[in-house]
Design a protein around this nucleic acid. Structure first.
Lengths: 240, 240
DNA sequence: AAACTGTTGTTTGTAAACAACAATAGACCA
DNA sequence: TGGTCTATTGTTGTTTACAAACAACAGTTT
């Protein structure tokens, strides 16, 4: 059974709270709602033309995803990031990806490998100009999602989905601070990921683990040096 | 029916959905609600004397915790476990505990260590008779929770909490199948865990990782051999 | 100033309805 | 008999409106 109902248009009977969740997530990831911003249920409900029920549900889900922060009787805010968060996220990511590639070596099917290669294929067909940091990062997250799917490990996949949202969110923030992250990163992306598919196909578990560890560590280094710290209003008093 | 009507609203600072969540979690973990059992919102709301709102919220949280399975328009069921789940849970646990003890070596404070030792202390004061599988397992989960707390890694801790609920749930199930799991396990528990505190205090990262890995693997072996498979009414393919 | 008190705006919870949907049971036809 | 189709039924999803609990703020009193 497919872990994720791949977004192929069929849009199957989505429920209102799903729509709200996705819209809100996009708004947060794209920074239409800036970090720290207050989200009032009534206001959002009015704005989206739905009642409070689905809004509450969406906010709770995004809280679980780490994109918003809910405090009792105080409501929800868009989450914000500092370097502690980066450290946490990438250390989790290392641990999870190592486990993922381990399981993928055992469980990956032909179609799993094909899905991963398909993403590499899409990348290779992009023109130089299309290889924007944003687009490549989107493909990057998609590739790693395919890797996690190949592990066939339900709980691992769900945990990754949470992490992915957070990575996605602060990556966009990082780009907005520094548009030219990509000098060394982008040309390397394709070859770097081809290795993943190969070691999985050949079931070279140890080499796979090393590969993925190095990969994530380089990712962290890249992000950390470019991440511009943002004052985190965790417990700040709101000034009017 | 074992669902206690909730105590009067003296209630303190907790909010209704918290109470419902905790009551339901207890009922599931203690198997007052057997795996696979259907949970209807209306029915539960009536039983607990609250409206559907807090019930829905509680069910969503328990779904996230993995104790309940919600399907759209079909409602919630108490989760059930098979050996695949055990494999998933323990592989996750290994990865997470290694990361946890790594961070604990860096970040543990004196009071963190003290908290862990306090639990060992409680254990050592238990009489032979009090060392039931159930009680020791409760202390075990508490100890490991203290370990995760000592890591000072927010996301890691939250992920552990999810896993803990699941471990707790099927451990109770395992005990109910076999009351004498403890012949080799129980006497070893105390000394086994003292090592944890020491390696963390001395910041012996590598040794710490080995220790925790072995520990979890033995835990898996113990559970796996005693786990009696239960028919799982998993997901049926959606027919249209 | 510090402590008290009420106001305000928000979240949280309740209630009663309706709408959308899934499962089931009959009805119908072959 | 066997199968498809359509009601029926029950549950979840959603809305509306209101009441209660609570945090933050401002003004008042001491």
């Amino acid at each position: 059974m497919a872990l994720k109902p791949l977004g192929l248009g069929l849009a199957s009977r989505r429920v209102l709270s799903d729509v709200v969740t996705d819209d809100l997530r996009d708004a947060i990831i794209s920074h239409d709602l800036e970090p720290g911003r207050r989200i009032a249920e009534d206001e959002l409900a009015l704005q989206m033309g739905v009642s409070r029920g689905p809004i509450r549900e969406a906010l709770m889900r995004l809280d679980r995803e780490g994109l918003v922060t809910i405090e009792r009787h105080k409501g929800a805010r868009v989450a914000s990031w500092d370097d502690t968060d980066i450290q946490e996220i990438y250390s989790m990511r290392s641990a999870l990806e190592v486990l993922a590639i381990e399981w993928a070596c055992k469980n990956a099917t032909a179609s799993d490998l094909k899905a991963m290669e398909e993403i590499l294929n899409v990348y290779s067909k992009l023109s130089e100009k299309q290889r924007t940091p944003r687009e490549v990062s989107r493909l990057d997250l998609e590739f790693h999602t395919a890797l996690f799917a190949a592990a066939h490990h339900e709980r691992l996949f769900k945990t990754w989905e949470v992490l992915r949202s957070q990575i996605h969110a602060f990556l966009v923030y990082t780009w907005s601070q520094d548009g030219k992250i990509n000098k060394v990163f982008l040309p390397q992306w394709g070859p770097d990921h081809k290795v993943f598919v190969e070691v999985i196909r050949n079931k070279q578990v140890e080499k796979a683990k090393e590969t993925v560890l190095g990969h994530v560590e380089r990712g962290l280094a890249r992000v950390a040096t470019h991440f511009v710290e943002e004052p985190k209003p965790k417990k700040r008093v709101a000034k009017r």
